[in-house]
Design a protein around this nucleic acid. Structure first.
Length: 1219
RNA sequence: GGGCGUGUAGCUCAGUUGGUUAGAGCGCAUCCCUGAUAAGGAUGAGGCCGGUGGUUCAAAUCCACCCACGCCCA
């Protein structure tokens, strides 16, 4: 045999190791760069990379987005588009600051200032790329091709200046204003907390709650009764709120009348222990506009006469009046709500909307706030000045009592947020000055823009995202933090005038010395990154003066919300408009982006909003965009991905440890555990055992009792093999070992014992951790991981991730295709198949099976291409999976004999050419999905034999659809044939007749005459598969079947109505044969149901054949298969021969005889067996590659004895040296 | 608490405009096949289609309410 053409492929390999080799090949040959180079000048497919933050480790969600990004980029590249892939990093924001605070062991703004803002920022910039290496490793392993070298970085000077430009544009358009924002405020720390931090800090506490009277101005004998759990906000009261459509009552009480919600009267009566008889009843709407005396009079004198003009042109008081609000509820309180807009977000919104609705005077309405940022009252509230708000509750309640307006007080148990770091410190909602973008002014435009975006899934567009846009409020842009894009607003400290420069150059034009402070700092410390020039605190020293204007322009202290950074990405990644105009013009908008659903209000929103605000027609013209965009969309198509959950559907959480790290899929099946004692976990451990939580066992896809390697992470060479067992009640990520094993490994008990949390385990000293690693099973690898995300479910569904689930889905397409590929390499090498030489006959002349699979291939190609063009990766993956199934389970299965036979005739060449065409086409179609395996196949079976071929599948073109190969009738026929085979095998199983035993005949009953005639040509396939000499396709009249009626209720239902139930019985009782005959003869018939004659057409019933009992038959709705089970002596002999044959083949395998190696065989046994063997001598020798078939011998050979059907058989096999 | 989404077999998913006996693959069990062999085939077990109520001759499918999970916002 000549040198094998193809590398012999294995179906199962160490995937992670194989993928590393392929990744190394891509790198060394610059395949990614070449894939870009060869498409230069072609139409561009634009993609935007949603920047991840690199200051945390990459997790499964990041793998998911990278997979969905990569699959379409690779696909479009192979379709001939030029697809640049600029990577990017999101580097600003609170998470970075928090990380640095943790490292420094400090918390709060005061502590940062104390530490020094300059060194703090330097630490931030160092922290940003802490995990870059891990990110790059994951990116490479998963096969995400991106230009990491030329990545954009949000803290870079060019990026910051683009953001500045964007903001300066908004200032020009008068879309920036100063207002207040309610934040969760940590008074002791002097800082606002993010929603995530607030969520972590909720505790159940008891607070005083008070029922307070607000006497009406028009009649102080009547009071509004309000309820609050924060008495300290009462001095800041501005309004009372009611629901206009609720029922309210005026009730009589000892010290005058009260107004309360009707529904809450009884509850209040019970609380105060006396009856409250109703005097009047009315709707809440009647209370609107009524004024009252505030509970504390600190601001009363100042604002009692303040008036505003409403939209209706009516003059009314501005403060201490009743407003309408739909958030008023009846489950607690009084139905009237105390409103202190400075200390509650809903209160503030009500206040802001009310003020905005006034025709006149709105701007003079104050926000009452007698509390300083440190949480202490100001002198404006003299009774409690200097008191911390929560501590003032008591005193304020006593004052209310003294004033005689406290009706009732009680303790109230509820959830209240505390600082997550200092858990004794309560948070308060607090109004802070803030800068806003007037996004509401462009509501119409942003909605129009959104309508032009293609969202997947579709409902996001009008649902979650559309709703958010419709209910949009102005964007609170500023953050009182340090590490972010500095807000480029400078204000004249005398005139109050505002300027918003769009670049450092613009500032330098105003003051050439503006950055002197920075340059000095840089000179003193040359290691400072040049990008810090445009960052706090250096930028805070930048000032200038305007000629002819007194005063100095100084920057406001805030930084910009980092979502604004991210939304500027479409132009800021190029430094546009200061540079990169051409790049921006050719890459705006993006054709495609994808991120997970949490970005709806994040990056998706920021991009859409900023593009809408900036790039109106005037701006586009001024910037020279060509052509002008009708809609300034940032992206045309957006796939919104679901999240990755644990196997039980719970969110993956670092602190719970309920996640499978990406490396367990991509690299090796291993997990680190903290070492604890058996006593600590109340379990018993034997030497040689390791106990871990059952969930951890499952996470590693282990059965109890499996053996694993255990070692301390720093001493991989010193390991023991341990039997894994679940430890009852053990927490996750801890392991119990016997004293002996622990000693052998040198492992120490971790200090925290079993209370160590999963998040701490990786940070324990090496000796306190034990790595549990599988000595045999390997990680499923990147292709499997990719396939898991792409093929398991629609992209927007949440998916349950685990090692077991990835392995399960790997058995689909990836392993099926590898099986066929492996089969091909075995036989192609044996026969010396050369695709250049053995091209096969024209497809029309090939076997039906070849024509069928090529038709399926063309159909699959068409589906994959149309679905991928449409961004439907899941549907495309399903099509690939179905094709691999057809190829493996039918085409190859039924074609095997064609490859086995000796010689190399036309049919064999056809078979090879067909299979080769299938494999090479699928390699290309699958390349975007499973890039490693696809390239392995392609390089092995194409590149090795075709010097002209591109060196990687990723440089090849997507296959085109050859419509001429599509034969839908053939597809239908083959489906029927496969069904007939399946039914025939079922009959054999039911009657316990082995497939090895040949049968004389079988009948396949098919009602439809046309189909029956068409499938008859495929009889040979059925005969081979069922091991039956003669299969005939017959009409029902000629077979032992009976008819069954299946009424078509979809047709009949609307006509019959209530008769449907009776109809069911009537159809069951009817003679199907007669109805069928009439339908065939006349095209119509009828049936009588409860005395009503119902006419029936062919549409109304389906008539099926069903196997008659007592015959060896099976059937379903399309066919019935009847087997002739008579066994003649000849058939039995044939069966016996197959038994002999199989024993010989078994022995070949036992003796490790190579596929093509020849043997000598000695056969001895009963007279009958010898006769059977002699009768089939030729085929026995041919099929077992037997050169000499001999009888008993005196030589010392290795006899093996069998009993077949009661007959004795002795066989001896001798290998013959190949020449 | 509000909005959006998801919920079908142990796992991963199909299930047309409502149509009466809810499917597939994987896994499991039993059997079969035997040079793709860590592959392949057949059969079987396994489902209150998340729950309750309603509309209808007919509900996994339509409606209402509730539950669980996730996301976003409170």
């Amino acid at each position: 045999m000549s040198q094998p053409k193809f590398e012999q492929a294995q179906a199962i390999v160490d995937f992670a190791a194989r993928e590393r080799e392929i990744a190394a090949f891509w790198k060394s040959r610059g395949i990614f760069e070449k894939s870009l180079d060869i498409r230069k000048g072609q139409p561009q497919f634009t993609f935007y990379e949603g920047p991840p933050t690199a200051n945390g480790l990459p997790h499964n969600g990041h793998v998911l987005t990278r997979v969905f990004k990569d699959v379409f980029l690779r696909y479009q590249t192979m379709c001939g588009r030029y697809v640049p892939r600029k990577a990017g990093w999101d580097t600003h924001g609170l998470p970075v600051e928090v990380e640095v605070e943790k490292e420094l062991g400090i918390h709060g703004k005061e502590a940062i200032e104390e530490y020094g803002v300059e060194p703090f920022i330097v630490r931030c910039i160092e922290s940003v790329f802490r995990y870059t290496e891990e990110w790059e490793r994951m990116t490479e392993k998963i096969g995400f091709w991106a230009d990491l070298e030329d990545a954009y970085v949000t803290y870079h000077r060019s990026y910051v200046e683009s953001v500045w430009w964007a903001l300066s544009e908004l200032v020009k358009k008068d879309l920036l204003y100063r207002g207040h924002k309610i934040v969760w405020w940590w008074p002791q720390g002097g800082t606002a907390l993010s929603a995530g931090e607030v969520g972590q800090g909720y505790k159940e506490v008891e607070d005083p709650s008070v029922y307070v009277r607000f006497p009406l101005v028009e009649d102080p004998n009547v009071s509004l009764l309000v309820w609050t759990t924060t008495p300290w906000t009462l001095p800041s009261n501005q309004y009372a709120a009611v629901r206009p459509d609720f029922d309210y009552v005026q009730v009589k009480d000892e010290d005058g009348s009260l107004i309360i919600a009707a529904a809450l009267r009884e509850t209040i009566e019970q609380k105060i222990g006396r009856d409250l008889p109703v005097e009047k009843a009315f709707k809440g709407s009647e209370l609107l506009g009524k004024t009252y005396l505030p509970p504390f009079d600190y601001f009363y004198e100042q604002y009692r006469d303040l008036e505003v003009t409403t939209a209706a042109g009516v003059k009314e008081k501005a403060l201490w009046k009743v407003l309408a609000a739909d958030f008023v509820e009846l489950d607690s309180g009084t139905g009237l709500v105390h409103e202190a807009p400075a200390f509650g977000e809903v209160d503030f919104d009500l206040h802001r909307n009310t003020v905005a609705s006034y025709a006149q005077g709105g701007e003079s309405v104050p926000l009452l706030c007698p509390v300083k940022p440190d949480g202490k009252f100001t002198d404006a509230a003299p009774d409690v000045a200097g008191e911390f708000v929560k501590d003032a509750d008591k005193l304020l309640i006593r004052l209310l009592k003294d004033k005689g307006i406290l009706l009732h007080r009680e303790q109230y148990k509820h959830e209240y947020p505390f600082c997550w770091r200092a858990d004794e410190d309560p948070l308060i909602q607090y109004a802070r000055p803030a800068w806003f973008i007037k996004t509401t002014a462009r509501n119409k435009e942003v909605l129009q823009n959104n309508d032009a975006i293609r969202w997947l899934p579709e409902h996001i567009g009008q649902g979650r995202f559309g709703d958010f846009l419709r209910n949009n409020v102005d964007w609170a842009l500023s953050r009182e933090r340090y590490w972010g894009t500095p807000l480029n607003i400078w204000i004249n400290d005398e005139t109050g005038k505002m300027q918003s420069p769009s670049s450092a150059d613009e500032i330098l034009a105003k003051n050439p010395n503006a950055f002197d402070y920075w340059h000095k700092a840089k000179a003193a410390n040359p290691a400072l990154s040049d990008h810090l020039m445009v960052h706090k605190p250096w930028i805070d020293a930048v000032t200038w003066q305007e000629p002819g204007e007194s005063g100095v322009y100084r920057r406001v202290p805030e930084v910009i919300d980092c979502w604004f950074d991210s939304g500027c990405m479409p132009f800021a990644q190029w430094g546009f408009p200061h540079q990169g105009a051409e790049k921006f013009n050719e890459s705006f908008p993006a054709d495609y982006i994808t991120e997970a659903i949490d970005q709806t209000r994040g990056w998706f929103y920021s991009q859409v909003m900023i593009a809408t605000l900036l790039f109106d027609k005037e701006c586009q013209q001024r910037l020279g965009l060509d052509p002008l965009r009708d809609y300034p969309l940032p992206f045309k198509t957006c796939i919104v991905l679901g999240h990755v959950n644990d196997p039980s559907g719970k969110k993956e959480s670092k602190s719970k440890g309920n996640y499978t790290p990406p490396d367990a899929i991509l690299d090796r099946v291993a997990q680190d555990f903290a070492v604890v004692t058996a006593e600590d976990c109340a379990v018993i451990v034997e030497p040689g055992q390791a106990l871990i939580a059952r969930d951890d066992l499952e996470a590693l896809d282990l059965q109890p009792g499996q053996t694993m390697k255990a070692y301390c992470p720093d001493r991989g060479d010193c390991f023991v093999e341990l039997v894994m067992q679940p430890g009852k009640g053990m927490p996750r990520r801890v392991v119990v070992l016997s004293d002996e094993d622990r000693k052998t490994l040198g492992a120490k008990i971790n200090a925290k014992g079993k209370s160590v949390t999963p998040i701490e385990v990786p940070w324990l000293p090496d000796a306190q951790r034990v790595t549990i690693e599988s000595p045999v099973s390997t990680a499923p690898g990147a292709d499997a991981f990719r396939w898991f995300f792409l093929a398991s479910s629609a992209p927007w569904n949440t998916r349950r991730h685990s090692l077991a689930n990835v392995r399960a889905i790997q058995k689909d397409f990836p392993l099926k295709l590898r099986n066929v590929y492996s089969f091909f390499t075995i036989y192609a090498n044996i026969d010396g198949f050369d695709p250049a030489q053995h091209k096969g006959q024209p497809v029309a002349d090939r076997a039906l099976l070849d024509r069928w699979i090529l038709s399926e291939l063309a159909l699959t190609t068409r589906t994959v291409r149309t679905q991928m063009d449409d961004f439907h990766a899941f549907e495309a993956a399903t099509a690939l999976n179905n094709f691999a199934d057809a190829l493996s389970r039918w085409y190859v299965r039924r074609s095997r004999a064609r490859y086995w036979k000796s010689g190399f005739d036309a049919d064999k060449q056809n078979a090879y050419a067909t299979l080769y065409e299938c494999l090479t086409t699928v390699a290309k179609l699958a390349a975007p999905f499973t890039p490693f395996m696809a390239d392995e196949i392609y390089r092995n079976i194409v590149c090795r034999v075709d010097a002209e071929a591109p060196e990687s599948v990723h440089l090849a073109d997507m296959p085109a659809v050859d419509e001429s190969l599509i034969d839908l009738l053939l597809s239908e026929e083959m489906a029927v044939i496969r069904n007939v085979v399946s039914l025939g095998l079922r009959v054999r199983t039911e009657h316990k007749i082995k497939v090895r035993q040949p049968l004389a005949s079988a009948e396949a009953v098919i009602s439809d005459a046309g189909l029956r005639n068409r499938v008859a040509v495929h009889a040979r396939l059925v005969e081979e598969e069922l091991n039956v000499h003669k299969v005939s396709f017959v009409p029902p009249e000629q077979a032992h079947v009976h008819y069954v009626l299946k009424p078509n209720f979809r047709q009949l239902g609307p006509r019959l109505g209530k008769l449907v139930k009776a109809a069911k019985q009537a159809f069951a009782a009817a003679d199907a044969a007669i109805l069928r005959a009439e339908l065939l003869a006349k095209g119509a018939t009828s049936i009588t149901i409860e005395g009503t004659v119902v006419p029936l057409g062919p549409e109304d019933v389906e008539i099926l054949v069903e196997a008659t009992d007592h015959f060896a038959a099976a059937g379903d709705s399309s066919a019935v298969v009847v087997l002739n089970t008579d066994l003649t002596p000849e058939l039995l002999d044939e069966g016996l021969f197959r038994e002999i044959l199989r024993r010989v083949q078994d022995m070949r395998k036992d003796h490790d005889v190579a596929y093509t190696e020849r043997i000598r065989l000695h056969l001895d046994g009963s007279e009958r067996l010898q006769r059977v063997a002699a009768a089939n001598r030729e085929s026995l020798m041919a099929e077992t590659l037997c050169s000499e078939l001999l009888g008993p011998t005196d030589e010392a050979v290795d006899w093996k004895e069998f009993v077949l059907d009661g007959e004795d058989l002795r066989l001896a096999l001798v290998r013959i040296k190949n020449d």
